[in-house]
Structures are given as C-alpha cells and as structure tokens.
C-alpha cells in the first residue's frame, strides 16, 4: 500500500523480553537517557577541561551526574537481573541527586556558582532531569510486573495425561 510507505506501516505490538529497554516505550526512555548521558558527559568534559579552577565542586558534580546517566543507560539496555539492579541503583541516586542538588542550589546559591544538570531541579534542561528518574522507576516497575525473571524453569516433561 502506498500509504504504508509514506506514512509508515502498521506497528508491531509490544516488543519484549524482560529487559526494561526491550519494550518500545522502554527504548524511547533509553534514547532519552542516552542523550542525557552524552549531553552531561560532554558538558562535564568541557567544564573540567577548560575552567576547572572556577567552580571545581559544580564541575565534579556535573561529571558525577554524567556517570550516573551512563550507568543507568547501560543498566536499562542490558536488562536481566543484574541490569535491572544496576539501573535501579543509578536511577535512585539520580532522583536523590536532583532533589538534593536542586534544593541546595536554590537555598545556598553561593555553593553552586555555575549551572549543573541538576541545578534548580534541572531548570536548564526543561526539568527533564526531574521527570526522567520517575519515568525510569515506573518503567522498571512495569516491566518487572509484566515479565518476572524466570527463576525456576518450567518442568521439562509434559504433565501426565489423564486417562
């Protein structure tokens, strides 16, 4: 059909596996996480490389945030038990980070002379850093419920047929 070529063929439902990044919506979140990992990483690199002495604490915090985003991205992509646990830890750190740094940057502005990703709850990034961990935790919960990791394999022999 011509419409399918121009406007896109009907989509496949679901997606899958027990990796949080396996579902379609999960992959969108992974894309956003990847973008932030890159953006925060590049910003931290430039800040540390060109003007570290101006605000070492803020720039080290930028670098730390970048590492957290990278770890979360990797965890979400890898999936499985280990990946989920890694992602959960990284996303929790991220949520605490954005809340603590966000609050401190507003109450004690002198401590944060230059912007970081988490300053003022991520205002410089349209508050995406505040929403992202919430979506991440939601995704981990949802995919966890939908397909729990198969702990005990199903019995190999077929159930005995009733006579």
């Amino acid at each position: 059909m011509r419409d399918d070529r121009a406007l896109g063929a009907p989509a496949v439902e679901g997606g899958g596996g027990n990796s949080p990044g396996g579902s379609g919506a999960g992959r969108v979140l992974v894309a956003v996480y990847g973008t932030f990992a890159l953006a925060a990483g590049a910003r931290a690199g430039v800040q540390l490389g060109t003007r570290f002495h101006e605000a070492p604490a803020a720039y080290l915090l930028s670098a730390f945030a970048a590492v957290v985003y990278i770890v979360a991205t990797v965890g979400l992509v890898r999936g499985g038990r280990g990946g989920r646990r890694t992602a959960l830890a990284a996303i929790s750190v991220e949520l605490v980070g954005v809340l603590v740094v966000g609050t401190l940057s507003l109450t004690d502005a002198a401590a944060f002379p230059d912007e970081t990703v988490w300053s003022a709850f991520g205002r410089g990034y349209y508050f995406v850093p505040l929403v992202l961990p919430l979506l991440g935790l939601l995704l981990l919960r949802r995919t966890g419920q939908k397909s729990p990791p198969p702990k005990s394999p199903p019995p190999k022999s077929p159930p005995p047929k009733s006579p």
């Binding site: 989509a11 496949v12 992959r27 969108v28």
Partner: peptide
Amino acid sequence: AGGLWARSEQTRWAGTVMAVA
C-alpha cells in the same frame, strides 16, 4: 541517529523516538 533508530524500530514507538530527536 534518530532516523536510523526510528527506522529499525518495529513498534509504534518509532515515531516517539523521531520526536525525541
């Protein structure tokens, strides 16, 4: 990157990947 990713995406979220990009 967004175009390549969205093109290989089989689910309806392909468009959202494009929109994020």
